[in-house]
């Protein structure tokens, strides 16, 4: 079996659909596109998908991944899909792979938070530490500096989170930042999936 690995964006209004909604959405996109996809068995046959770990509701996905099982290779998948997507999904790249291994190979994601409001940086750093969130942040030097090295107030944050049991949901970080005062959220996103 051959798989199409689809790199796509989830943005705009569709940041508000859940992962289950997204699966249904891709189900219909795939059927509309006319590409030679392969079906699951059973009473409600569906395209065979394998998704990257879910995006939380509200988060834009700048480079999301999805594997679609195909009956046969098909050359213009990207064009076929982009012709039938709703506004809020757009395919940037498609390539073929032999084995679908998204479940194993994606180990984390880079999450970005942008808000309007006054949060002191030391409070934020302290909050991340005391809530235990910091323990789950991928600890490469430059990122640590980024977290603790700033001065004054802050209204954006980028942190990598590993997908391991017990790691915090990005939504907890939103709640943490909200706990420092009244904020208006401008944008939340996952800009990268970290591969093994």
């Amino acid at each position: 079996m051959v798989f199409a690995r689809v790199e796509y964006k989830k943005y705009g209004p569709l940041v508000f659909i859940s992962h289950l909604d997204l699966i249904r959405c891709w189900d219909r996109i795939t059927r509309r596109s006319g590409i030679p996809f392969s079906f699951t068995e059973g009473f409600h046959p569906r395209p065979r998908f394998s998704f990257a770990p879910p995006l939380p509701v509200g988060f834009e996905g700048e480079r999301e991944l999805l594997d679609i099982a195909l009956e046969s290779p098909y050359s213009s998948i990207k064009e076929a899909i982009n012709k039938v997507v709703p506004y809020g999904i757009y395919v940037n790249n498609v390539y073929f792979i032999e084995h679908s291994n998204l479940g194993d190979s994606i180990i984390g994601g880079l999450y970005n938070f942008q808000w309007m409001g006054m949060v002191k940086e030391e409070d934020l750093g302290e909050g991340l530490k005391s809530s235990g969130i910091k323990d789950w942040i991928y600890s490469s030097e430059p990122l640590n500096q980024d977290l603790y090295g700033f001065s004054g107030t802050k209204n954006s944050l980028s942190i990598p989170i590993l997908f391991v049991k017990g790691s915090p949901s990005p939504k907890r970080i939103v709640e943490l930042i909200d706990s420092f005062g009244e904020n208006i959220w401008l944008k939340l996103s996952r800009s990268l999936l970290l591969e093994k």
């Binding site: 508000f16 859940s18 219909r28 809020g88 959220w185």
Partner: peptide
């Protein structure tokens, strides 16, 4: 506004943009 929708229970009901 994004912030308004982010803070309610079923934001997807208010986004339109259906195929």
């Amino acid at each position: 506004p994004f912030d308004l929708l982010y803070r309610i229970r079923k934001p997807a009901s208010y986004i339109g943009n259906e195929y």
